[in-house]
Design a protein around this nucleic acid. Structure first.
Length: 494
RNA sequence: GCCGCCUUAGCUCAGUUGGUUAGAGCGCUAGAUUGUGGAUCUAGAGGUCCCUGGUUCGAGACCAGGAGGCGGUACCA
């Protein structure tokens, strides 16, 4: 192979490798969330990563090529396959395919990677993990309220304090009602409705000014790019903005304000308010008041997808980045009602509501909030000083493992110094050392790497840093496991 | 997708108006300090200067195209 033939070792754009602590943290979080889902009576369902593209509903309009945004490939029979971009579309396919055999309502949860062929950004990858729970075949509001309550429990189980997050809720029908009151109810206004909703979706980021521009003539951003506006009359634009600011401190107040707005003017709007009112009442009875679930009229969510209540969970503690600016993580979980999804397959409307936790985002957020608490705790490393005693070393490691302590024998070819460096790099709590001296005495030396590091940090004047041998003890071989366990317990206290 | 900025050692970055063997800090490897990671000292390894093409006697520096990264914006089921 010549130089130019050599492939470059690199991960594909928007993808990444992960190891050790991060995987453990995600596995742990998924287990906690799944446990909550399962305890609420949801059964796990696993579906394939690849689906027929038409089953996912992702062909470009009027073109027989799959949509941008999904990774697709053509099978040898020319049929298009796509990697799933969420867990809900496969659920709809599964329900339609097995409709008659399933208990209805059908409750399932699903965990796994999904792929999106989009521009990656910080914390935004082209492969990420979702953790969903959905109830198919149950109309609002009971299933919706349950879903929200369960989400709150799942987020807590994942490690976010009760006071550190809030779930914001809105309803698609309420938004439809708003659009009707500004004269955008008709079928011919559909494109404009879309633009208005998109503009509203940016309220949190762009504020009144930006949204006002987007509702009117359009907006030019700081890079010089221009976004076409919805071209509403000024009065109507103001109504939209006023609407978004009219979320009240209590859910009851919000509902009565909305009722006032819609009464006699929009059936859809009134229906939405009733639903919101019912859900928040149910939740309140269950102990979820405004401090945990609040009506927020700026919540929009997916545009041509949700048909009723929509909600998202947001972290309230905004940690600061290196420059001291607050870090926005966006929604850590979201969900809503989508009554149309199965209709594509069956022709009949099947009501459904679900929730999705963005696992990677939640992990990243937690990481920030509690400052890399996911610190690596490596295995105990048994040094291999005498090559002809490897069997003894393996026996030591085995004893430690039997006592529930992660342990391994150093298997490289380097000397003692390098072996300790290795142990250090692995994050080992301690190293077990038995050279010829210890062996002659029937002992092992246990070096406390955590304590040693701490002592070294305190001792500024050096040369005598070597007396840091206080961080190690010799014990009879038979007491090795006990001594090791004691040291590990002690380290935990620090 | 569009706009802007960036890409030099494992990492963070210097590199003067184009001019010989491309540098620093940290990290890494080895040695010293009785058989010891984290302190100190010494030595060493490590670079297709993102890629391709062009301008030039000469390109890490200049030009064009591409790739990757960052930021903004659009889209986001």
């Amino acid at each position: 192979m010549t130089r130019t033939d050599k492939p470059k070792a690199r991960t594909a754009r928007g993808f990444r490798d992960r190891l050790g602590a991060e995987i453990a943290a995600e596995r742990d979080m998924l287990a906690r969330i799944s446990e909550v889902y399962e305890s609420w009576g949801f059964d796990p369902l696993d579906t394939p990563a690849l689906e027929y593209t038409d089953a996912l509903g992702k062909f470009l309009p009027d073109v027989d090529r799959p949509n941008d945004g999904v990774f697709s490939l053509q099978d040898d029979d020319e049929q298009w396959l796509s990697l799933r971009y969420d867990l809900t579309a496969p659920l709809a396919r599964f329900v339609a395919e097995n409709y008659d055999a399933l208990p209805k309502p059908f409750r399932r949860y699903a965990v796994g990677p999904v792929w999106r062929n989009e521009k990656p950004g910080p914390g935004r990858y082209r492969q990420f993990t979702q953790c969903d729970a959905d109830t198919v075949g149950a109309p609002a509001p009971f299933a919706d309220a349950e879903c929200i309550a369960m989400l709150a429990e799942a987020i807590e189980a994942a490690g976010v304090g009760r006071q550190d997050f809030i779930i914001r809720i809105n309803d698609r029908n309420v938004l439809t009602g708003l659009l009707e009151t500004i004269g955008l109810g008709g079928d011919d206004s559909a494109p404009q409705r879309l633009k208005v909703l998109r503009a509203m979706d940016k309220f949190t980021r762009l504020g009144d000014q930006g949204v006002r521009q987007l509702l009117g003539i359009g907006r030019k951003d700081e890079s010089g790019d221009f976004t076409e506006g919805a071209r509403l009359e000024d009065v109507d634009a103001e109504r939209v903005i006023t609407f978004m600011k009219s979320s009240a401190p209590t859910n009851v107040q919000s509902c009565s304000r909305l009722m006032e707005l819609f009464e006699g003017r929009s059936a859809a709007g009134a229906k939405g308010v009733e639903t919101l009112s019912a859900i928040t009442e149910l939740l309140k009875t269950a102990g979820y008041d405004e401090s945990r679930v609040i009506i927020d009229l700026t919540i929009i969510r997916g545009l041509e997808y949700y048909t009723g209540p929509v909600f998202e969970a947001e972290l309230l503690t905004a940690p600061l980045d290196e420059q001291g600016r607050p870090v926005r993580f966006g929604a850590i979980a979201s969900g809503g009602r989508y009554d149309d999804l199965v209709r594509r397959f069956k022709g009949v409307e099947v009501p459904a509501v679900g929730v999705s936790v963005g696992v990677s985002r939640l992990l990243a957020a937690l990481d920030f909030v509690r400052g890399r608490s996911l610190e690596e705790r490596g295995p105990v490393v048994v040094l291999a000083l005498e090559k002809d005693r490897m069997a003894d070393y393996q026996a030591m490691a085995a004893e430690l493992r039997r006592a529930g302590v992660r342990a391994e024998v150093y298997l490289g070819g380097a000397g003692m110094k390098a072996q300790l460096k290795y142990a250090d790099k692995r994050g080992a709590p301690l190293a077990v050392i038995q050279g010829s001296d210890e062996r002659a005495r029937g002992e092992v030396t246990i070096k406390d790497l955590v304590l040693g590091a701490r002592l070294a940090r305190e001792i500024e004047d050096n040369v005598k840093w070597r007396e840091g041998q206080a961080a190690q003890i010799s014990v009879p071989r038979a007491q090795m496991v006990d001594a090791a366990k004691r040291i590990i317990e002690g380290d935990r206290a620090w």
